[in-house]
């Protein structure tokens, strides 16, 4: 198995883990969904600035 395949499998596993986390959060309610987490983080000054910075960085990193 090449390193490329290993790397791509890693990204896929992480993506599936994210989707699983969201499904578990919606079904059980034991942890916050991604949307709830964002809302909670936006209520703190550091979290709010970090989220907007992460969004801005995505724009300049991939597009700018």
């Amino acid at each position: 198995m090449s390193w490329r395949t290993v790397t791509l499998v890693g990204y896929t596993v992480i993506a599936i883990a994210g989707l699983t986390l969201e499904v578990v959060a919606r079904r059980t309610g034991t942890i916050a969904t991604f949307d709830e987490l964002i809302r909670r983080l936006l209520r703190t000054r550091s979290g709010r600035i970090a989220l907007f910075a992460a969004w801005a960085w995505l724009g300049v990193h991939f597009l700018g």
Binding site: T30, R43, T44, F52, W55, V60
Partner: peptide, 28 residues
């Protein structure tokens, strides 16, 4: 860059007064 920096500035200027009142996301 301009839109991003403008909104980061907006988030800073309009953020809550402190972090103490915010509920901790904890386990999530």
């Amino acid at each position: 860059g301009s839109i991003g920096i403008a909104l980061v500035g907006w988030a800073w200027l309009t953020g809550p007064g402190g972090d103490t009142a915010a509920p901790s996301p904890g386990r999530s």
